[in-house]
């Protein structure tokens, strides 16, 4: 086990480097955008004097590297991610509420899509080339072939709209209870499920079918083991590594890539916050959200690698 702990430590250290690089790229990227927060805030009515005054007030008149290094120093020395330029609230406070909603939605969609795609993938592998297999594949492919907003509006049309059961806009003005939450966020969760299921399902199916020609699968069949058990007990454990990796990638997508769905359902998640902050060049918030996104990728990939390692006896039990 010690080699796994060592791997985790190494990867976490590398993760910090990744976060640093990401923050640098984001800072440089936003620097390249035309205009800054002062111009965006003052808009049409800006005079050179007022823009300069606002810049000086917010420290935006400093050169790029000074601003970046100051921001970095505050994080390293005191864990301070700065305050939003737009409303003066601490970035951590502003992000934490949005992060909670984003994670909620990601968990909600994952709780539906992961078991669903695993089950469909296993069944498709078991009954490969059957009608079921083709139907599952075709519908999964159809659902990812449409843009997310289209799927979302179709769902709203079918399930919300006139006589619909579910709300088309997610209203969190009052803090929801758990069951209320499940009800209100049902449509976005289903939309996301439709988007990510195909990828995971097809990978599960392919990873299992890939193994079905192995000698140990033939051996299992020749031992008279039932087909379902052959797939579940003999193929699946050996197919876990690629499946886990695809699941991790899709979970990361559920956290970081859902801005379109958030916009359609007016869901107060991180994606919307990111887009709004970029629009007004609210640098500290953009940086904070970008770091969260990067950290989600780093942690999920690390988790996937650890689980994939643990699923392989050759790596866990040395000779």
């Amino acid at each position: 086990m010690s080699h796994i702990l060592k791997m985790i430590a190494q990867r976490l250290a590398l993760g910090l480097v990744t976060l640093f690089v990401v923050s640098l790229i984001i800072a440089l990227g936003t620097e390249l955008l035309p205009g800054d927060f002062a111009q965006e805030r003052l808009g049409q009515s800006a005079t050179p004097e007022t823009v300069a005054a606002l810049r000086a007030q917010l420290g935006l008149d400093q050169p790029f590297h000074i601003r970046y290094l100051t921001w970095l120093r505050d994080i390293v020395t005191s864990g301070d991610f700065g305050v939003s330029l737009a409303n003066g609230n601490p970035v951590t406070e502003q992000i934490s509420e949005r992060l909670r909603y984003t994670l909620w939605l990601a968990f909600y969609a994952a709780a539906i899509s992961v078991p669903l795609s695993l089950t469909l993938g296993i069944l498709a592998a078991l009954f490969r080339n059957s009608f079921f297999d083709r139907f599952a594949n075709a519908s999964a492919l159809t659902s990812i072939s449409f843009p997310e907003f289209f799927v979302a509006y179709i769902l709203i049309f079918l399930l919300a709209g006139a006589g619909g059961v579910f709300p088309s806009m997610v209203n969190f003005r009052t803090d929801p209870t758990f069951s209320e939450y499940l009800y209100r966020a049902f449509l976005p969760a289903i939309t996301l499920t439709l988007v990510v299921t195909a990828h995971m399902m097809r990978m599960t199916r392919a990873a299992i079918i890939n193994l079905l020609a192995s000698p140990y699968i033939e051996m299992a069949r020749l031992k008279g083991i039932k087909p379902m058990r052959v797939v579940l007990r003999h193929a699946l454990p050996n197919a876990l590594a690629p499946i886990i990796n695809v699941i991790a990638l899709n979970l990361a997508y559920l956290i970081t890539g859902v801005v379109v769905v958030e916009v359609v359902f007016v869901y107060p998640g991180l994606g919307q916050l990111m887009v709004d902050s970029v629009r007004v060049r609210d640098m500290p918030v953009v940086q904070g959200v970008a770091l969260i996104f990067a950290a989600a990728y780093v942690l999920l990939n690390l988790t996937a690698d650890v689980l994939a390692t643990l699923s392989n006896p050759r790596l866990v039990h040395k000779r």
């Binding site: 000698p215 140990y216 051996m219 020749l222 031992k223 007990r233 003999h234 050996n238």
Partner: peptide
């Protein structure tokens, strides 16, 4: 019948044992 009354021993045991169990 397979496994119970007729059994099979493969050429490469290393490949025919399931590595996961």
């Amino acid at each position: 019948l397979r496994g119970k009354r007729i059994a099979y021993v493969a050429q490469s045991a290393a490949a025919s044992f399931n590595p996961a169990h």
